[in-house]
Amino acid sequence: MSVFSLLKDVLRFRGLIYAITLREIKSRYVGSTFGPLWLIVPPVFMVFIYTVIFARLMQARMPGIEHQYAYSIYLCAGLITWNLLLELVQRGKGVFLEHANLIKKSNFPKFILFIPVVAVALLNSMMLLCLVLIFMLVSGYPLSLATLMIFPLLGITVVLGLAVGALLATLNVFFRDIGQISDVVFQALFWATPIVYPLSILSEPVQRILSWNPVFPLVLNAQKAMLGEPLSLSQLVYPLVFGLVVLLLAVLLYKRSYNDLLDQI
Results as ranks from 00 to 15, higher is better:
102 L>C: 05
157 T>H: 04
167 L>P: 02
130 C>I: 10
103 I>Y: 05
107 N>C: 01
132 V>G: 01
126 M>I: 15
171 L>T: 10
143 L>N: 01
116 P>Y: 06
132 V>W: 00
175 F>R: 02
159 V>G: 10
184 V>Y: 13
109 P>Q: 05
123 L>N: 04
154 L>K: 04
144 S>H: 14
163 A>S: 12
169 A>S: 15
151 F>T: 02
97 L>I: 06
139 S>C: 08
126 M>E: 10
137 L>R: 09
103 I>S: 07
118 V>N: 11
144 S>Q: 11
160 L>I: 05
129 L>S: 12
138 V>Q: 15
157 T>C: 06
164 V>D: 07
173 V>H: 08
174 F>K: 04
184 V>E: 01
120 V>P: 06
157 T>Y: 03
173 V>P: 13
142 P>Y: 10
129 L>Q: 08
159 V>D: 06
176 R>F: 08
145 L>K: 01
103 I>E: 06
148 L>P: 04
169 A>V: 11
169 A>Q: 06
170 T>M: 08
115 I>H: 06
176 R>K: 14
133 L>Q: 11
106 S>N: 15
134 I>S: 14
166 A>E: 03
98 E>Q: 05
134 I>K: 00
105 K>V: 15
173 V>Q: 10
126 M>C: 15
181 I>K: 01
164 V>Y: 01
106 S>V: 14
152 P>Y: 07
140 G>Y: 13
156 I>C: 13
112 I>K: 09
120 V>T: 14
186 F>D: 10
103 I>N: 07
141 Y>F: 15
155 G>W: 05
98 E>D: 10
163 A>F: 02
120 V>L: 10
111 F>I: 05
156 I>M: 12
170 T>K: 05
100 A>V: 00
114 F>C: 14
151 F>S: 00
172 N>W: 09
148 L>F: 10
177 D>Y: 13
162 L>Y: 11
153 L>A: 00
133 L>P: 10
104 K>A: 13
162 L>D: 02
180 Q>S: 08
114 F>T: 13
127 M>H: 09
154 L>Q: 04
119 A>K: 11
172 N>C: 09
135 F>W: 15
185 V>L: 15
178 I>E: 05
148 L>A: 12
148 L>I: 11
115 I>Q: 02
146 A>Y: 12
185 V>G: 07
163 A>T: 08
179 G>S: 13
121 A>T: 07
122 L>P: 05
161 G>A: 01
107 N>G: 08
106 S>D: 12
177 D>N: 09
110 K>D: 12
185 V>K: 07
131 L>P: 03
154 L>A: 07
97 L>Y: 02
125 S>C: 05
109 P>T: 03
102 L>D: 00
103 I>D: 00
144 S>C: 14
121 A>L: 12
154 L>R: 03
174 F>I: 09
104 K>D: 10
100 A>E: 10
146 A>W: 07
118 V>F: 12
